[in-house]
Design a protein around this nucleic acid. Structure first.
Lengths: 341, 341
DNA sequence: CTGTTAGCGCCTTCAG
DNA sequence: CTGAAGGCGCTAACAG
């Protein structure tokens, strides 16, 4: 007994339809006008009788176009990433592409690995939410001319299309909102900035905004997502020093906002009552936590969609210079940034 | 000028190394002992000089094994799915497979589409979190003997390996917990049960548990996730009728728990104070909402990992009968199910 | 140890 | 309108 019913091939269909492979191939590729009704019908029958499906591998091998797009995501656990993914997927569907999703788990080795993997599967384009990217990998990529667009984060010294948030505008809006509502001591919290431009841009805009208000004290701190002890200490310390002055926190992304909220709760610092709080990235539970958490909502789906549109343009031969496309964030105001008397 | 630097092929490498393709192929496939050190070195050099990467498409075509696994997820937006995905991914990595992820968005047409797509890419196995599956698709799948395991949900009249939660145990635990804590009127809320066995099993176990306590009133209701009006009405009505009797809600999954929490908040029914609440699926924000929401946490990662292990077994020829593998859930107790005096 | 020879399933000239 | 022949990049006999 055969272990697996061998799939029908184009030859099987040709044989069953009493014709050559060529005609079947023509049929498959929509050249319907070029076939006599009779032949066409025989082919149709043979196909459904054998339950034939063309082998995309073979097709890709021959034509050099796989209609495959690779997506490399730094952390699929992050709702931001998932929303972006949905946008990309929609765009793929619209353009007739299939998406291969890889999750690097924020490990640079994985990133390297998946980059090679995807390219060995002959993907036609790449969307990357980068962790870091090794030099070597980048060089290879650049010479391979594989269309690629970066999402959210840029890579230092690497010229490439990027789509993401207008970080300056967003951070400015968030900061001014707090200042306008009476907060006078602001702490900007982010994960270690390292080479991540997104974090840096947000911090810089925050600083510049604060600089416009002499009465406002501003600080910033970097914490690892997993180091809840340090986070607690930082917040506690900040509150000790500025609690009387209407203190508030600006948190650079959603994952960290979750940790911050936990820490504040452990410390007994209710957001919106003892201390202000605004977080980047919309959170589905933002309205349920205490009096609600004010967030800076990104148009994530659109970012994903736009990224893939750009990839498709490049696949289709656009040779315009590298461009950076940014979207505006929207402040969703809730109780955690309540106006002070 | 060439638009794209053509990728080096195995022939190019062979030429550059002054040898035949076979030796290069051997090198690639790790048959290192079978090559003279000299040849080996020439090949190594050629490969890195040309930056050669084998074409997986061609390889797959020839060998008939692509090392590709397809994952069809009903709703990638659901954190449950993402956690499962991470488990699957880890197992893929461990087994040397690559994962193709497709999101059906709970649309049965998409499911159909992706099933065909994945099979046309010659995936060697499939993990499916099913929406519904069309008859036709199922028959084709069955005859194709493509290894497949279902996650979470079974498909009626379709015999297939399944891995998921022990729904009876979980629902029983949740129910008894509420009863033990003094709640006497229990409402089980789920999305429309339809053919989804998971929902049905949880409901049945809930009912059977309640039946053991004559003093407990039990009801159940089905609501669409998006129909917040109906949800509000149901909860309000239930509270009207049983509020005085220590009412509590059991919600069949995480996505619905979010909606329920929103509705309760709009109605001014604080969980744990005016009404009890337990939800299936752990929520990262469970401890932050009011006094916390008690959840039934599934070992999601393990479920994913186990599912893929099963797929791999089947790929490797295991012909044991179809089996169902269940994992135990764990009740994470928080304020929303606080004991009543 | 090494190279030659056939295809894998499909598409694409190029002649009927 | 139709079909035969060749080859995409790679692997798997089969000979040296």
């Amino acid at each position: 007994m055969k272990h697996k019913a061998a799939r029908a091939t184009i030859s099987d269909v040709a044989k069953a339809a009493k014709t050559g492979k060529t005609s079947v191939s023509r049929y498959l590729n929509g050249e319907h006008q070029a076939l006599s009704p009779d032949l066409k019908q025989r082919i149709e029958q043979a196909i459904s009788a054998l339950n034939y499906r063309p082998n995309q591998m073979a097709r890709g091998l021959k034509r050099g176009r796989t209609r495959l797009i690779g997506l490399i995501i730094a952390d699929i656990t992050n709702p931001y990433s998932v929303d972006v993914l949905c946008g990309i997927e929609a765009a793929c569907r619209a353009g007739g592409f299939t998406l291969l999703v890889c999750n690097t788990n924020n490990e640079i080795d994985q990133e390297q690995h998946y980059l090679q993997l995807l390219s060995s599967y002959q993907v036609e384009g790449l969307v990357v939410n980068a962790v870091g990217m090794r030099e070597e990998a980048l060089n290879l990529l650049q010479q391979s001319l594989l269309p690629m667009v970066l999402i959210d984060r840029k890579i230092p010294d690497f010229s490439c299309d990027v789509v993401g948030l207008d970080n300056r505008q967003a951070a400015t809006d968030a900061t001014e909102h707090l200042v306008n509502n009476g907060y006078r001591a602001l702490l900007f919290l982010s994960e270690p900035i390292g080479m991540v431009n997104t974090r840096l841009e947000r911090l810089q805009a925050f600083r510049q905004s604060c600089a416009r208000y002499p009465e406002v004290v501003s600080e910033n701190a970097e914490v690892a997502l997993s180091d809840s002890g340090a986070l607690e200490r930082i917040i506690h310390d900040f509150y000790q020093r500025h609690g009387g002055r209407h203190a508030a926190l600006i948190v650079a992304n959603g994952a960290l906002t979750l940790q911050v909220a936990r820490a504040m709760r452990r410390l007994g610092l209710e957001w919106g009552r003892k201390m202000g709080l605004v977080g980047f990235d919309e959170l589905e539970w933002a309205e349920l936590a205490g009096d609600g958490i004010t967030t800076l909502k990104q148009p994530t789906w659109q970012i994903g969609y736009a990224a893939l549109e750009r990839v498709i343009q490049r696949i289709e031969g656009e040779a315009t210079p590298v461009q950076e496309q940014t979207f505006h964030g929207e402040l969703v105001i809730r109780g955690s940034s309540r106006p002070l008397a």
